[in-house]
Structure formats: C-alpha cells, structure tokens
C-alpha cells in the first residue's frame, strides 16, 4: 500500500482564521501529531450504485413534488483526480446547498427567505470510470450569516469527497465565477494562497451548457496523491 503524500498545510486554510469567528473556539492550539500511515488511513469505505437513489444526482427532480424548484437551472460537472493527475473512479461525491433564495432546508436555518417546496438541496453521485461527475441543480442564492454585522456568504455548493483512503477525505465549497462576495468572505479568504482560492471557483463552461435548458459550470476536485516512492515496504509480505 503506497502511503499518501503529506498534506500541504500552508495551502489549506489554517484551523484558526480569526476573521471567521467560529474558528476561534473550535481550532486546536497544539500542533498536529505526525502519524505513521497504516491500513487505518490508507483504506476507506467503498460505495456502490445500490447506496444511491436513481435521481440522487438531479436536485431538480430528487425532492420535487408539485413542480420544478424555482431558480436558474445549472449543471455542475467535473472530474475527481489525485495530485498525480490520475482519475479517481467510482468514488462517492455528495453535495448540499441552499435554494435559489439562499435558504437551506434545515431545522436550524431561520433565514427569512422562503424554503422551496420542491427543493431539498441534497445530491449524491459516484464518479464514472474516468472520475467524472455531473449534477443537475439550481443555482443557490447568497445569504446572510451572523459572522459580523453585515456578512453574506457568496453563492456556493458544499462538496464532500471520499477517494480510496480515509486520509483522503475532503470537504470543500465550490463558488461561482464572477461573484463579488467571494473576495469579501472570511471563509474563502481563510485560504491564503490566491491560486488555491481560484481553484475553488467554478468557471462558466459554455460547451457543456445545454442550450435553452441549463447553463454549465466546471469544477474539478483534486485529492491527495500517493508518494512517488513507496517507503518502509521492505517488510511487506514477510
């Protein structure tokens, strides 16, 4: 089993990002301990089509009861790959999002914007053999949040990805090209590297757009890769 390349902690947001206020009391202050990777980290759960419903990838249809949800019809598609550029096939991608008005269907969301009776906001898919995925949904709205006196989250979709190893587990958020709220958001700006932030923004993908139906955005996701050279494998199988 090839170990995973170490995480570049400078590339990710730090645990403590004071402008994002909730991180102040939820960030460990002691340094992370190094861990020798073993099967605990290098294996992970495996999912199959049987775990998913037939419309899980289609958020326009997977909760609708009396018609389509309100909002801009969009396609979010991309590829899950590792840091070496290898596709990650048959891996579970889960998404969740607010509706077009910026309201989540959640017992703890009290924003005054309305819930949409035909929108749940939960999506799941397994990547295909080439690592590709494609969701059909509506564009989420921006919404206010209690970080400061006048804080607004840019429109975003949350992504959860598995890969093949538990230590590849990743949750992130995808933003939309051109949204002026991105540069004002302390959650986005907790990522210090502008290049890392840019990769969280999905550009318009006109070629994947379905004319007179849905506009497309492209979001590729990269998971940790394997070390080029296996280490400490001399004893394997002995």
């Amino acid at each position: 089993m090839k170990p995973l390349a170490p995480r570049d902690r400078q590339w990710h947001p730090p645990a403590l990002a004071p402008a994002y206020k909730t991180s102040v009391t939820r960030s460990p202050r002691m340094p992370l301990m190094p861990l020798e990777q073993s099967a605990s980290e290098l294996t992970g759960p495996v999912f199959g089509q049987g775990d998913l419903g037939p419309h899980d990838h289609d958020l326009i249809r997977n909760y609708a009861s009396s018609g389509d949800p309100i909002g801009e019809r969009i396609i979010i598609h991309g590829r899950v790959q590792d840091e070496d550029g290898r596709p990650v096939p048959h891996t579970l991608v889960e998404i969740w999002q607010a509706n077009a008005a910026g309201r989540y269907r959640h017992v703890n969301d009290s924003y005054l914007a309305p819930v949409d009776p035909n929108f749940g906001g939960c999506g799941r898919i397994l990547t295909d053999a080439t690592g590709a995925f494609r969701f059909h949904t509506i564009k989420p709205g921006a919404y206010p949040w209690p970080n400061g006196p006048n804080s607004w989250r840019p429109a975003h979709i949350h992504f959860s990805v598995f890969g093949t190893a538990f230590a590849q587990r990743l949750i992130t958020q995808m933003y939309f090209q051109g949204d002026p709220l991105i540069d004002l958001c302390p959650i986005v700006q907790a990522v210090a590297d502008p290049q890392a932030r840019a990769l969280l923004t999905a550009p318009l993908d006109l070629e994947a757009t379905v004319p007179f139906d849905s506009i497309a955005y492209r979001f590729d996701i990269t998971l940790r890769g394997r070390r080029a050279t296996p280490f400490e494998n001399r004893t394997e199988g002995t």
Binding site: R7, D8, W11, H12, P13, Y20, S23, Q81, D82, E83, D84, G85, E94, I95, W96, Q97, A98, Y104, R105, H106, N108, D109, G120, G121, C122, G123, H158, S160, L170, I171, T172, Q173, I187, V188, V191, D193, Q195, A196, R197, L199, L200, I221, T222, L223, R224, G225
Partner: peptide
C-alpha cells in the same frame, strides 16, 4: 496538481 483546498462543512452539513 494541488489538493483542492478544504472549506468548512458549515452548520447545514446534515442536508448533504
């Protein structure tokens, strides 16, 4: 390629 940067799961993680 670089690993996609992490972002918080947020308060509504349960939806997904």
């Amino acid at each position: 390629h670089k690993e996609t940067a992490s972002q918080t799961a947020g308060p509504f993680v349960h939806i997904g």
